[in-house]
Amino acid sequence: MNIGQSYFWAFIVGGLWCVLAQLTVDLSGMTPAHVMVAFVSLGAILSGLGLYQPLVALGGAGASVPLPGFGHALVTGITQQMEDKGTLFGLFSGGLSATAIGISAAVVFGYLMAILFTPRGKR
């Protein structure tokens, strides 16, 4: 896959995930928060079934940036560390180690933003 194709598939796969989530909100009436939670779990399940890795191979960031990719990262993180460091150790440390950068960045920058900025009134 060349560079151009990687961008194309990232756009398509990422866009389609978002369409699926939008349809869920519009047709089921679920709140965005519920849909975010549901899609993380969905990603984890697809990953367990071995279906998510092929999607990442095709879509690249289009599969790993949407929240189902977060669920996939949790499962692959656990599986990886279970192989490397033992079953029980991996089961409880693999998920968070694989996603540590994202979560830590969100917390640190969240804190920083709260110090620097104040919400503006809506018009």
């Binding site: 756009f11 866009g15 978002c18 960031a61 940036v65």
Partner: peptide, 16 residues
Amino acid sequence: AFLTGGVICLVGQGVL
């Protein structure tokens, strides 16, 4: 949603 999500993933692909 498709366009917005697509563009965000496009940026992600650039980073990747």
